[in-house]
Amino acid sequence: MASIWEYANPLKFMRTSETILPFVAWGASICLVVGLIWGFFFTPDDFRQGSTVKIFYIHVPSAMMAINIWVMMLITSLVWIIRRHHVSALAARAAAPIGAVMTLIALYTGAVWGQPMWGTWWAWDPRLTSFLILFLFYLGYMALWAAIENDDTAADLTSVLCLVGSVFALLSRYAVNFWNQGLHQGASLSLDKQENVADVFWYPALVAIAGFVLLFVTLVIIRTNTEIRARRSRALLARERMS
């Protein structure tokens, strides 16, 4: 059985990821199209919220991805710090802008949904506030990557920032909860069937979530491969200059 660490080799990673890329990309498109169309047009309106509830099929997956992408960055940062695999650091770098965009989508769809429901685009609700803070963390992380010229130094510094940032993001989540009890409903989806939304909403939501995950994987593969190529060409140029 081949070890997973074989994919730490950039060349191996690029070959394998480019083979699976078309499948993932098609999977993402199909899941997104099916999930969203099913959710938008073939589910009943909510008895209180009407059709506005359907933004849920974008809002919930993007919000989940916003958090999951940060967790993925945390893991890849740890892999970089412990095992020094360049692909890992570059994957974290590649994922950050996607995470930031997901956070923005979650905030935007939340505002659009909140306007008819709560009568306001924005409230300093714990969940909303936490997402805004998460967005700031993404911004800081990307800015640090962009500010440092040496790639290894940047990878090291951003990894430590990601670690420390995760602790503080979690702490902020609790602090914000403590600070203000909010308008936002509890988690909409959970594995515990008792609290879950009805099946008619649940299945299209699952498909949409799968679509968002696959979309992320597609984008992160493309971006990581771009980063690898850029990194390699920079290294080659630097060597040429020196010899």
Binding site: L171, S172, A175
Partner: peptide, 24 residues
Amino acid sequence: TVGIKRGGLLLSLLVLPLYVPTLI
């Protein structure tokens, strides 16, 4: 940000979100 020329703005961007729990 110690190695970065004119890192002041970046420093604020990095540090301020970390200040949230303390401030709250």
